[in-house]
Design a binder for these strands. Structure first.
Lengths: 108, 108
DNA sequence: TTTATAAATCAACTTTTTTTGATTTAACAA
DNA sequence: TTGTTAAATCAAAAAAAGTTGATTTATAAA
């Protein structure tokens, strides 16, 4: 096995790890529900999302962090509030056009 | 809350569960690697895939079952051998066009 | 200051997923 | 039959992910 092929394998490995992270983030029905709500409502803060999800704040923060770390959503803090929003561009790179209406804003 | 909205919520819940299953199946770097190999090689039996993946047979069967249960791959048994192949149609419904070359056969 | 609210983080616990090695099932050939 | 190979399944152990309630951090208002 020559160096070129080894380098290819190493970068492919990293590609797999990258998509593992992203697919893991969206591979949860609670997080898919969060994405669905953000699709409809746009940016939302944790305090407004928590009652809609019927979920404790710490638990919601946990799930939002996973989506944030995978770059599926973005965060903007204003004062005491943190507003989370879908990352449309990322989702377009990841999901089929058919999943658009479910998990991606209709404008995209 | 009227019945119509409740019914919508129930079916949405089922949609989320459906995609949870599918995304969980592809949310693993080993399984992504299997998909990548099947992308390049077409149908393969477990005995040929095992050495390529450097993975024990029982472990490989476990991962193949998860992909099969999510309808990401299909199985065709001929004699003692089982041949696994990517389910192109399913992947087209799921993944973006950009992930084509990585995890979907080039013909699609 | 003090108080209140929003959100992140933490540690302990629970649940789910993955790994491992052995066993079983099934098809085929000698 | 008997032996061989392919692949699925099983139970136990290990690892990873998710939940819970409490605490901490940070901003803003009284």
């Amino acid at each position: 096995m020559n160096e070129e092929i080894q380098l290819q394998d190493i970068s492919l490995e990293k590609v797999f790890e990258k998509y593992e992270l992203k697919f893991k983030a969206i591979a949860d029905k609670k997080r898919l529900q969060i994405m669905n709500i953000l699709t409809q409502k746009g940016a939302m803060c944790v305090c407004d999302l928590a009652p809609m999800m019927d979920m404790a704040q710490s638990k919601l923060s946990y799930h939002l962090k996973i989506l944030l770390d995978a770059n599926i959503i973005t965060k903007e803090t204003r004062g005491t509030w943190s507003y989370y929003e879908l990352n449309q561009e990322e989702l377009n790179h990841l999901l089929s056009h058919e999943l658009c209406c479910l998990f991606k804003p209709s404008s995209s």
